[in-house]
């Protein structure tokens, strides 16, 4: 089965760094940033390109800052 490729875009300015998405991610794609946003939180970001577009992170995000993308079917390798 071809692996599904995905990506997440996080509104880092509104992220509160609770870390629930990082815990929910099954492929360790997400991690805390080293930088902080203007509120002083270490926001969540993609640390490796392993996203499978499972949407787990967006489902548990209390601040709805995560947008999930999936590779179009005909473009998948």
């Amino acid at each position: 089965m071809a692996k599904v490729k995905g990506a997440v875009v996080i509104n880092t300015e509104n992220c509160k760094g609770c870390g629930l998405c990082i815990y929910a991610c099954p492929t360790d794609t997400l991690g805390f940033s080293k930088e902080i946003n203007s509120k002083g939180f270490n926001y969540s970001e993609m640390v490796q390109d392993e996203c499978i577009a499972c949407v787990s992170c967006a489902l548990v995000c209390p601040d709805a800052v995560i947008t999930v993308y999936r590779m179009k079917k005909d473009k998948a390798v």
Partner: peptide
């Protein structure tokens, strides 16, 4: 990650 050829599936 480049979002070219990607569908938005959750927002």
């Amino acid at each position: 990650v480049s979002l070219e050829n990607m569908d938005k599936i959750y927002e």
